[in-house]
């Protein structure tokens, strides 16, 4: 094999390895985690920082407080699973099925409870002393697998079979 060919192969391999390495690093930095409430509170909540996270749980009955402030609908509620709880703040639309004890996935960031104090005051909610961190959600999704075509078709088929 000629030297130039070896050089070309080496160069290509080096570029490829460097590219893939950079890519994997970049991916890890951008990955969005998905946790159940109990899994989440078992972690060090202060370590989440800027990372976006999806939190999955059930709405604690009677915990929803909602109010329109300056044309914006603000709400807070407690999300729970297996006895573990975390408070969620959100504004804007909510899923049609959102109500007490409904299954919800909140997408957002883990922030210190103190940062949400002013909203809590407007909603007239007292922040729990044992919850130093809350979820500032930018989106709430109903966890409803039957929402989309295939799942529903399969479900229908199963029911019939």
């Amino acid at each position: 094999m000629q030297n130039s060919t070896i050089a070309k192969i080496a160069l290509t391999a080096a570029v490829a390895v460097a590219g893939v390495g950079f890519f994997v690093k970049s991916t890890l930095g951008h990955s969005q985690h998905y946790k159940m409430v109990d899994e989440l509170v078992a972690t060090d909540l202060s370590s989440w920082g800027d990372k976006e996270i999806k939190v999955h749980g059930w709405v604690l009955a009677g915990s929803i407080v909602e109010q329109v402030v300056n044309q914006e609908t603000w709400r807070t509620f407690i999300l729970q699973n297996k006895g573990k709880k975390i408070r969620v703040f959100s504004s804007g639309p909510k899923p049609d099925t959102f109500k007490d004890q409904s299954e919800v996935v909140a997408t957002g960031h883990i922030v210190g409870a103190a940062t949400q104090k002013s909203i809590a005051d407007q909603l007239k909610v007292n922040l729990e002393s044992d919850m130093a961190y809350v979820v500032a959600a930018k989106e709430l999704q109903a966890k409803c697998p039957s929402k989309y075509e295939g799942a529903q078709v399969n479900k229908n088929l199963e029911e019939f079979q």
């Binding site: 890519f23 991916t27 951008h30 990955s31 969005q32 998905y34 976006e52």
Partner: peptide
């Protein structure tokens, strides 16, 4: 391909459920 399969790959490797969002795709 990689970014789409990323959640499946990580779940298979260490069981954690992670995904990459729209900003990540756009960035590349």
């Amino acid at each position: 391909l990689f970014a789409t399969m990323f959640p499946t790959i990580t779940e298979a490797l260490d069981g954690s459920r992670v995904s990459v969002g729209i900003p990540f795709f756009n960035k590349w």
